[in-house]
Write a protein that binds this DNA or RNA. Sequence first.
DNA 1: GTGAAAGCGCTAACAG
DNA 2: CTGTTAGCGCTTTCAC
Lengths: 345, 345
Amino acid sequence: MTGTVSRPTLEAVAARAGVSRATVSRVVNGGDGVREPLVERVRQAVEELGYVPNQAARSLVTRRHDAVAVVIAEPETRVFADPFFALQLRGISKELTAHDSQLVLLLTEGRDDHVRVARYLAGGHVDGALVFSLHLDDPLPGLIHGAGVPTVFGGRPGWGEGVREAVYVDCDNRGGARQAVRHLLGLGRTRIAHITGALDQTSAVDRLDGYRDVMADADPALVAQGDFTPAGGERAMRELLERRPDVDAVFVANDLSALGALRVLREHGRRVPEDVAVIGFDDMLPIAEQADPPLTTVRQEIEEMGRLMARLLIRGLGDGAGAEGPVPESSGVVLPTTVVRRASA
Amino acid sequence: MTGTVSRPTLEAVAARAGVSRATVSRVVNGGDGVREPLVERVRQAVEELGYVPNQAARSLVTRRHDAVAVVIAEPETRVFADPFFALQLRGISKELTAHDSQLVLLLTEGRDDHVRVARYLAGGHVDGALVFSLHLDDPLPGLIHGAGVPTVFGGRPGWGEGVREAVYVDCDNRGGARQAVRHLLGLGRTRIAHITGALDQTSAVDRLDGYRDVMADADPALVAQGDFTPAGGERAMRELLERRPDVDAVFVANDLSALGALRVLREHGRRVPEDVAVIGFDDMLPIAEQADPPLTTVRQEIEEMGRLMARLLIRGLGDGAGAEGPVPESSGVVLPTTVVRRASA
DNA sequence: GTGAAAGCGCTAACAG
DNA sequence: CTGTTAGCGCTTTCAC
């Protein structure tokens, strides 16, 4: 194993350079207010000794960590199967990098993990947290609230303590759903079904609400429960075909499950969009474009949402604000959505 | 934003419980050697104040962090597209959780990230590192070596300083490749091609070597370069069909690219396995089983490799060993592979 | 068994 | 400009 070596301290560097610890500290942290010759001597000593500041010691006094936790309340298998997270992470990553902050990814699978994560956050390892994919029964918001770490949520958190004043970034799920359904109506479809997402998440609930806004008096049999996965989409589509064989359009809660729905429709010999029009949600390019037929869908700017979350968090950190700052009028940022027309509807 | 609160310190708890800091510390860390009534009083004070130990302060003295970094030297998009990482992470995660250690995921995309990651590791945030998916020109091994953090590599690291004594876990890539090719030979195939992985990674090189071990004097035109992605597999398969239309079998460096190869074969009207037998590598269940036809492949125990990596790291940490410990006879653990027969070969 | 005291390595006033 | 001096919050001898 590449071994542990006892690293040199500031003291050692100071001794070697023949200056005080304070001077070394100044140089290491940018070197303002230190005269050139000294700076050079110190730099050289740092180099020779291979000095790297001990973050624990530094954090202890500065209370900064230059690291932000991203918490995803979803099992690895799902996180890694769904490009949604990848995109969002990419946005976050770019923004954090620009601010010289390290991204620390924390995945939680079970309840025990929640406690561990909460301890980690409260333990002061990071300057803030970005939290995703909360579920109905999730104790995380409460735990995080208790941890007292500045937090921005991805998606409107629906439950838990401190949720009222929570800062979050989301897309206009309800409005997007309405757009989707109206698009189908515009195509002349009348028997429009909906395959929901996991209804323990606000995004799924909001999209369902949007569907209902437009289809107020539709047959309840036209709504089938999915869970945002392709398998869930398949299951739901089968149910729909059984209950309402006359269905002529379906709005699916996300692109990934739309894939499953398309598969089932093909299996049953229904042509898309001739027999059944299909519209998804997310506009996950690799999925929507590769689908057969290419998927019409509601676009949300996933990567941009990631960037925005990171930016909000960092801004909040910067001004030293927190619970004490004046509560912003709106604590949630909601990004608009647009229908992207391809072949499926 | 859920705000920053100034958390109570040990001191505060001690005051509240009417004991010394030392006693609180003992209770918080297990409570041996403290009499019951005191333990109770302290516990209550901790509860009431919502005390959580400050990790920075603790690490500063203990030099432990109860956290392990997992470094993946691959852009997010690939990491999240390839179930390989998900499986390995799952293994690691389980093992670390069992040892009460936090998993910290660090993704690196470009060269700047490498430096950032190296700084993070050297800065003493974690007790050790698990590093994956190294590429030829990757400065990471050297940087990590310099960081002096105990490290276990996933896959044999081929390059960089300190690589000779590096601890790693890998599967028998070369042997597995030989098994694959022999399996094809056993099927009576004679014009056996190979689609390589990204040849800047040792696993791809080793698999190519294994192929050559068996097909020593095969036409070089039977080897096409891929990159472990489906797109790469497609491209390589097209090349092969062009160069050697008489190809009757192909050993693909991993299941993901085999998917691409299958698609191209289908496109060209070649039946699998009748016209062309296809064998993959990895046995990524969701992929191999869903493929059409289901993919015969070389199985490696990915999740188990993850577990093993974590276990090796933790063991190394436990005995306080490192560079100073006696060098183990073999610093690499190589797991066996087996051919899993399905329909494609 | 419990408390007092000495640091872990660093930064941040404050003097000089 | 540079050095001296206090701690940050915690663990850990070492006395009692």
